[in-house]
């Protein structure tokens, strides 16, 4: 593998991302309330919390897939940039990757087409992304007949080709076997080294310890802690987080 290129090429960065007073409700049910959060330009943030805490929802609000019922989600270049320009500088990897019924290479090229990359450059960039994640031998293989681990790696390669400034990962390893989990964690580090901001949810506390620079802890739709990882795992500030780390508050 070649030396890692720097992803930050734009004059003005997308980050920090600032959420102020963000609230989300469906009907009478408040799923997320009064979230204030700043995601700085570098690092790996792991979002933790019991099931139904609102982790996935928080990521979707940040990524712009869901609009908040109240409050503001603001990027550093919000004032001037169009919504699509902001979207094109982010990427998201889902728990279950959605891949199109075409070859691995064509899946990546499709994403590049949506980003407005000229046709001539697409296959070269797509092949480069596949190579980085060890998928070049499978380039012509149909994405739908790949194994679960290969599919998730392809989703990561697709995100890589987009050269995002920030990458959201929603429980990317929860459906994978241990070797595939390792591959995803390595991929996260590859993104990190290239300068991509990482925001990721997981149910795996070991994984959180391995990857986190800082931890966002959610419980019942409220953001209870946002602290450096070392502090969170040794000395949680809230009784909920302490119970969660002990395993008393998992599901």
């Amino acid at each position: 593998m070649s030396t890692t290129p720097t992803i930050h090429g734009s004059p003005k960065g997308l980050l920090p991302l600032a959420l102020s007073g963000v609230r989300f409700q469906r009907g009478d049910q408040v799923l997320l309330s009064e979230v204030n959060l700043t995601i700085g330009p570098r690092g790996k943030t792991i979002v933790l919390g019991p099931n139904g805490a609102g982790k996935s929802l928080l990521m979707r609000l940040c990524h712009g897939l869901v609009q908040p019922s109240g409050g503001l989600v603001r990027w550093a270049l919000d004032e001037r940039a169009a919504a699509t320009a902001i979207r094109h500088r982010q990427a998201m990897v889902f728990q279950r990757p959605v891949l199109l019924r075409r070859s691995a290479l064509a899946n990546v090229a499709h994403a590049l087409a949506l980003q407005g990359v000229p046709r001539r450059q697409r296959s070269e960039r797509a092949a480069e992304a596949l190579e980085r994640f060890g998928l070049l031998p499978l380039a012509t293989r149909s994405a739908r007949v790949m194994s679960g681990g290969e599919q998730q790696r392809l989703a990561l390669a697709r995100a890589w080709a987009l050269r995002p400034e920030i990458l959201f990962l929603d429980e990317p390893t929860s459906a994978l076997d241990p070797s595939a989990v390792k591959a995803v964690e390595d991929a996260v580090l590859t993104f990190h080294e290239a300068g991509t901001r990482i925001v990721m949810t997981t149910h795996d506390l070991g994984q959180a310890r391995r990857l986190a620079d800082d931890v966002v802890f959610l419980c019942n739709g409220r953001l209870l802690e946002h602290t450096p990882a070392a502090q969170f795992f040794c000395d949680p500030q809230t009784p909920e987080a302490a119970a969660f780390l002990r395993g008393d508050l998992v599901w």
Binding site: R60, H63, L65, T84, R87, H88, Q90, A91, M92, F94, P97, V98, L100, R101, R102, H110, A111, L114, Q115, L162
Partner: peptide, 26 residues
């Protein structure tokens, strides 16, 4: 229903999603 989040995440408009979906549902 299955593709919406992924395609929106990739920056696809609804109009742009039509050929993608037609091809995938062929």
């Amino acid at each position: 229903e299955e593709y919406r989040e992924q395609l929106q995440s990739l920056g696809s408009s609804r109009l742009r999603a039509i050929p993608t979906l037609l091809w995938d549902a062929r």
